[in-house]
Nucleic acid binder design. Structure first.
Length: 271
DNA sequence: AATCTTTCCTGCCGGC
DNA sequence: TGCCGGCAGGAAAGAT
């Protein structure tokens, strides 16, 4: 479900609901996430005042007094704020009760998501410390991307999805950005010119901005913190459209496999 | 049965 | 020889 625009949409939805709140009680029903929820996690969160809600790549950073809750939604995770008396569903693994009669609930059927409590700077956590630049932050541009990809023989699409090169670009938006930039997804990253990396950086920016404006994509049943679905998928140029005509040239969009993931592209527009 | 949004880890290889 | 980085594949688990 979530790539950067979806996580950012969730962050924006969550921020006003958690502002000024305090965690009161923590219930863990299933500790077996991607990394097991640490023993003592419940007690560490209790009575913490909540501060800013930030994001790094696809990680949500829920800053509290004395520490930070780091949440990753994996493939199928979701967060919502609901009344504290709401009965738990099948994959509601974690409830964080708030001091206003509601709770923050973490649901994740596939359990590829994760939850960490850290007392040091969360950006120093091993999972976050080596991440590449944020694509929407100042300082990210085509020249940076060009520099990051020197010596990379692998396909540009796979390098784009490497979080240590560029943070937060997943399978869908990698296909979309390459389509917008006119670059073939299987092209070796080191054989893309500096000029085309500048086009690609612009395409990444535009693609993410459009997705954010639409409130993220709806894959399966993505909903934001208030339950509203995103609608960016209606704007996909190539993703999931194998066999359909390219909007620019009319050629049939093709699908290929890269690293066990589906890639979609236009054979005429992308070189 | 095959596929799907994530990403860490392992094993292997090449370069210095 | 040893070390490091890059690269491909596997793994986690459930719903459709």
């Amino acid at each position: 479900m979530p790539e950067l625009p979806e996580v950012e949409t969730i962050r924006r939805g969550l921020a006003p609901l958690l502002a000024g709140r305090r965690f009161t009680h923590v219930t863990v029903r299933h500790r077996g996430l991607r990394w097991p929820i640490a023993p003592g996690f419940e007690r560490q969160l209790e009575a913490r005042a909540i501060g800013a809600i930030d994001r790094r790549a696809k990680y949500l950073l829920i800053r509290c007094d004395g520490g930070t809750l780091i949440v990753h939604l994996g493939m199928s995770g979701s967060l919502c704020v609901v009344p504290a008396a709401t009965p738990p569903g099948k994959h509601d693994h974690l409830d964080l009760a708030l001091d206003d009669g509601r709770m923050l609930r973490f649901n994740d059927p596939r359990r590829f998501g994760s939850v960490h409590w850290v007392e040091d700077d969360p950006l120093d956590h091993p999972l976050l410390a080596t991440l590449g630049p944020e694509p929407l932050a100042p300082g990210f541009d085509g020249d940076r991307l060009y520099a990051e990809t020197r010596g990379r023989k692998a396909a540009i699409k796979q390098v784009l999805m490497d979080g240590h090169v560029l943070a937060g670009i997943g399978n869908i938006y990698a296909s979309e950005a390459l389509y917008r930039a006119g670059i073939h997804p299987a092209r070796s990253a080191r054989r893309v010119s500096r000029a085309r990396y500048r086009l690609l950086a612009d395409a990444i920016h535009t693609t993410l901005d459009l997705a954010l404006a639409a409130g993220g994509s709806t894959l399966r049943d993505f909903v934001d913190a208030t339950g509203a679905p995103g609608c960016f998928q209606q704007q996909y140029g190539v993703y999931g459209k194998a066999g359909q005509p390219c909007e620019r040239c009319g050629s049939a969009i093709r699908q290929l496999r890269q690293g066990q993931r589906s890639t979609f592209y236009c054979p005429h527009c992308q070189r």
